[in-house]
């Protein structure tokens, strides 16, 4: 039997409502950022130190082999991705904070589907990540790191940044309904970001890792985000390594979809 036209119309209407919820949440995140953007600068201090201190030092002692590219070129996309992860992981903590305040109860009292709220929060994290990344990108340019300025490649990088922000905020929003308190979530945030960072290819190539670490890096979403960013941002990177860009983006997408689904399923538990 063919589904009736009315059915399609209904699906279309609920699909457009779904999308509107997601976009509305991201829109108001942007408005908040416009009212007060100081946080972007405060959160920029740590990645700046990675570039200015760690990056410059390791570049001068030439301890890590990065092919024909300078170490700072290699490190910048890694630090960029790390800062995106730090921004995004904060969203699980914010979810608990909004629950404690009452904002989350209020949000859940609207007809918006739970999963749209999860995706809306994730997209908010993605949007905020863009601004964080722009700051670090600008710093790298000031430090005279050679990065692409090709608008198409930059567009690609922005898409990866948004995806990365969504992925890590979803991981964090999966954990929020399990740990439930702000104190625990702060600890969890610390406990997952650093291991994810050090088991990724952010500061050293995967080829240099011992085998056990390689295995972890292979399932670490951050590695895929970083590789995709390097492909877009470092001039000549794609030609030299022929990295599997579609695999990197696909893996990030898949991880985002999995964690978003889990977060949406667990979401109700955060109120109880």
């Amino acid at each position: 039997m063919m589904p009736s036209l009315g059915f399609f119309r209904m699906m279309l209407a609920s699909g457009s409502r779904y999308l509107r919820t997601v976009l509305t949440l991201a829109e108001f995140e942007l408005r908040k950022l416009r009212h007060d953007s100081s946080e972007i600068f405060i959160r920029g201090v740590q990645p700046a130190l990675w570039l200015l201190v760690f990056g410059v030092t390791f570049a001068s002692i030439r301890a890590i082999q990065t092919g024909p590219f300078t170490y700072l070129q290699y490190l910048t996309p890694g630090v960029l991705a790390q800062s995106v992860m730090f921004v995004a992981v904060f969203y699980g903590i914010m979810l608990v904070w909004e629950r404690d305040l009452g904002l989350l109860n209020k949000l859940l009292s609207t007809p918006a589907p739970r999963s749209a709220i999860v995706l809306g929060k994730a997209l908010s994290a993605g949007v905020r990540s863009i601004f964080q990344a722009i700051m670090i990108f600008a710093l790298a340019l000031i430090m005279n790191v050679s990065l692409t300025l090709n608008p198409l490649e930059l567009m690609g990088a922005i898409i990866v940044i948004v995806l990365g922000g969504m992925c890590f905020s979803c991981i964090s929003m999966c954990l929020a309904p399990i740990f439930k308190t702000r104190e625990k979530m702060m600890g969890i945030g610390q406990a997952i970001t650093m291991p994810l960072f050090f088991t990724s290819s952010a500061i050293y190539p995967i080829e240099l890792m011992p085998d056990w670490l390689k295995a972890i890096a292979a399932v670490n979403p951050l590695s895929y985000v970083i590789e995709a960013m390097r492909t877009f941002l470092i001039p000549g990177y794609y030609e030299y390594y022929q990295p599997p860009l579609l695999l990197d983006i696909g893996a990030t997408l898949l991880a985002t979809a999995i964690f978003a689904t889990i977060a949406a399923l667990l979401f109700r538990r955060i109120l109880e």
Binding site: R20, T24, K32, D100, L101, L103, T110, P111, A112
Partner: peptide, 22 residues
């Protein structure tokens, strides 16, 4: 508890919910 976002203006708080209620 508190249900408004204090980092938004009064107008924006209302606009957000008028959008969320379609």
């Amino acid at each position: 508890e508190v249900s408004i976002d204090t980092d938004l203006t009064g107008y924006e708080n209302l606009l957000m919910y008028s959008k969320l209620y379609y």
